[in-house]
Design a binder for these strands. Structure first.
Lengths: 298, 298
DNA sequence: CTGAGGTCATAGGCTACGGTTATGCCCCTG
DNA sequence: CAGGGGCATAACCGTAGCCTATGACCTCAG
């Protein structure tokens, strides 16, 4: 189950990307602050282990072969994901010495913020960002107490004393395993069906669950299964335990992989993700930029 | 620019994911076929380097802390991306001893196939897959010559002697840098505007470019800049060189990061991605399953 | 024609990281 | 109260990957 060692360590692939960008092994080595022979050896070793020829080495530099370009493109998405991880962790750690403090609810922190922070970093290379992940109520409290400069919340409740702007709309998706009876439906499931069907869901109080219950006017049945994490729910549903309603952001990977499928819904299941800051305040500096980045890709 | 070393090596994060799944450091160690002390040391070291507490260690097992769960979720997407890379490379290498041979055009090979292959692998754990990436014409030829069991092509041309089924629709997106005049448009750009504007584009003959030209009825102007890779185009556009028309699959990361933005278009820019196999043949075994997986997430 | 400056490859030596086994402590359960 | 499962500590070791030094090759300018 674990990744083969060649793929677990992305440094060699990063080196490959640098070669692609800079046109020579030596320059790539310099970019990684290692010696040219070290870079050369790593790339040879990478080719050997993959069993593929990735580079055209010439006396005037090195360029990618066709397969090298394909591998490089795949590698880029892996490196980008690792970069998002790194950025998120950095923001999570930097509780001291920070300049921009952000609080965000689960869905935003998990699926959206890392990419936003990566983008923010290109505008503010030296900036240290603090991230606190909490539920919507705590986020609101942190913003009011000026513990953080900017907050992101989901769900319909509008806290008082705060200014809120919608930055994104999160579609909730009804998902089932590929073999499930609902998986072949073309007509959307109705509100009544959804309300009457016991679902696999998060614990009461979760933002996603509250949004779902509100969309159905509160008339839902007791859950089939109550699990404390989105991941656990996805596994349970994929294993055939029934249907669940989850943020569409949370299931893109599973949909792409085919382990889950969406069921069309006749009920508009949406919730707005809002940026919040103290009423009357004007956003400035990095907070303003982060807000702009968040808005930009609605 | 390179990834900090802690994040370049994903093994420690994989170990964290195993702990989350299995509930104890010892079992996670076993899953990775390393000794329990080795796993324990790696996880401590990971916590130390991240400056975060990830695990609740108890005499009855270990569970993730709240931050641990967040880090684990980010790590999961990174590991999944690395897994897709690994699967893709494996398919690329296995030209011999294979059971299922696939040929695919650029867009499909780059953005869709890895995830499909990951899904296919769960159904056929031992299966070896060969992947050949080529342009649509070559893919068709390979299918006709029975060099491969299944092909994926983009673009409107329907080769004769082949049966084709649409598996996905690829939306072409007009993209510009955030500061570009078009970036604030609410009304879609018209066919006339697109035809009259010199764009950053791929070389003549590229599938994406052909699809775009066909959508505009062939009346386009000479490109502003002609580049040989999608990545190069994205960089040029992000740097402010103008507008480009690219597969929406190719720009999701940049849109999320905010380095590119889409411009609404009044022209329906779509192209169908088709699976192809010899007319009259019936898909069987892994080829059939891969086709089903591809269809499943249209 | 020849030397200078760029490329990548090879060789030898060293460090340190991550692995192993052996062992201890702690807590729960029967 | 003994046994077992869980995690941590200690001592030892192998090797992967680094560095410096050097070589071979190509291209271009004088």
């Amino acid at each position: 189950m674990p990744l083969p060692p060649v793929f677990a360590d992305l440094t060699a692939f990063e080196l490959l990307l640098s070669v692609a960008r800079l046109g020579s092994v030596g320059r790539a080595a310099a970019a990684h602050t290692i010696s040219q022979p070290a870079a050369s050896a790593r790339l040879r070793e990478l080719e050997r282990r993959l069993g593929l020829t990735l580079l055209h080495r010439t006396p005037r530099g090195s360029t990618l072969t066709a397969t090298g370009a394909l591998v490089a493109d795949w590698a880029r998405t892996a490196v980008d994901a690792a970069d998002a991880l790194a950025t998120g962790v950095t923001a999570l750690r930097a509780t001291h010495e920070s300049r921009l403090a952000v609080a965000a609810s689960q869905t935003v922190a998990e699926y959206l913020l890392p990419a936003w922070l990566v983008a923010l970093r290109t505008a503010h290379p030296g900036l240290t960002v603090t991230l606190r992940a909490a539920n919507s109520a705590d986020v609101a409290a942190a913003v009011l107490a000026a513990d953080v400069n900017l907050g992101f919340v989901e769900g319909p409740d509008l806290p008082t004393g705060l200014h809120a702007e919608v930055v994104a709309t999160d579609r909730l998706a009804v998902v089932v395993a590929p073999g499930h009876p609902w998986s072949r439906r073309r007509r959307g499931v109705t509100a009544e069906e959804l309300a009457a069907t016991p679902l696999v869901s998060r614990e009461a109080g979760s933002g996603t669950r509250r949004a779902f219950e509100q969309a159905l006017g509160g008339r839902t049945t007791a859950p089939l299964l109550e699990l404390s994490s989105t991941t656990a729910i996805k596994h349970a549903v994929a294993a055939g335990s029934g249907a669940a309603v989850l943020s569409s952001l949370a299931v893109t990977a599973e949909l792409a992989a085919g382990t889950l499928v969406t069921v069309p819904s006749a009920v508009p299941l949406q919730r707005r993700l809002r940026a919040i800051w103290p009423s009357g305040d004007q956003l400035i500096g990095p907070a303003r930029d982060l807000y702009a980045i968040a808005r930009r890709h609605r």
